[in-house]
Amino acid sequence: MAETRYINGIQQALLEEMADDSTIRVMGEDVTFGGPFGATKGLVEAYGESRVINTPISEATIVGMAVGAAITGLRPVLEIMFVDFITLGMDQLVNHAAKLHYMTGGQLEVPLTIRATCGVGGGYGAHHSQSLEAWFSHVPGLKVVAPYTPADAKALLKSSIRDNNTVLFLEHRGLYWTRGEELAEHEQVALGEAVVRRAGKDITILGVSKMVGTALKAAEQLAEHGIEAEVIDPRTLAPLDLDTIVSSVKRTGHLVIAHEAVETGGIGAEIAARVQEAAFNELAAPVMRVGAPFSPVPTSIALEKEFVPGPEQVIEAVRRSIAYNRVA
């Protein structure tokens, strides 16, 4: 199987979907120039400026404009350059995109995909590095997708674009140049389906986005010490594939959740709560969380390194879970 990069998976998904559906409009800041990372490279040459639309730096309005276009016949794919900037568009996202289908009694649909770069790396600082998936997952009416592999980036973006709801498609900047197998021709991945990245019997580790890789690294090291970890990639955070997670936890009895967002109020808290409701008796230890400390993302790479949890923090959480003595 040929290999590709994550960023190319995204670019390919856009090219292919635009060929199939003339209502798709790619819009956002600098998209005609490929955006800062090249995700939209080649689109304007292929489809012209009427379908690949450069917008002013007006996030509050371009989110709303994309919603307005979506409810009147277009299928916009909006790029928000960094997810941090979506804070400016939260009214349109939370009050309009997420609620219009419901508030109108199902009369309007909002087939909108919002792509946004997230994640820490390279000293970008507090306004270009956040992971905000928990905010979006808290809002009824939104879908939230966070792919890890290049093949998933392509497959899930295609599924997001075809979905008739507003989908937040979160791309970790640190994954853009990672390589992986290409998506097989005609292969599809539905939203809301988790995948087991590594099978194991002793403990379940769930990683979000780039932290899937961190979890896999931790699992390799644990294997050297005789601990076989199962690694789950949820891929979609809303709606969450709880069944896959719970069935794994029922076999292993242990769960560690790792994400790059701050641990407090993160998506891990929600997953932990739901797993303990569904599998309390099978759990041999409390669900452990590994996330960033409760601070903004620092800029200095010396501090950044401390901020993002690595495999050693995941291993430490695994050890605490396995060593936990449950008093009957």
């Binding site: 309005t61 404009m65 919603v67 409810i71 009147t72 277009l74």
Partner: peptide, 12 residues
Amino acid sequence: GNIPLALGAALS
């Protein structure tokens, strides 16, 4: 809040 929505519909 309706102004950006109308803008998007104008694009449509």
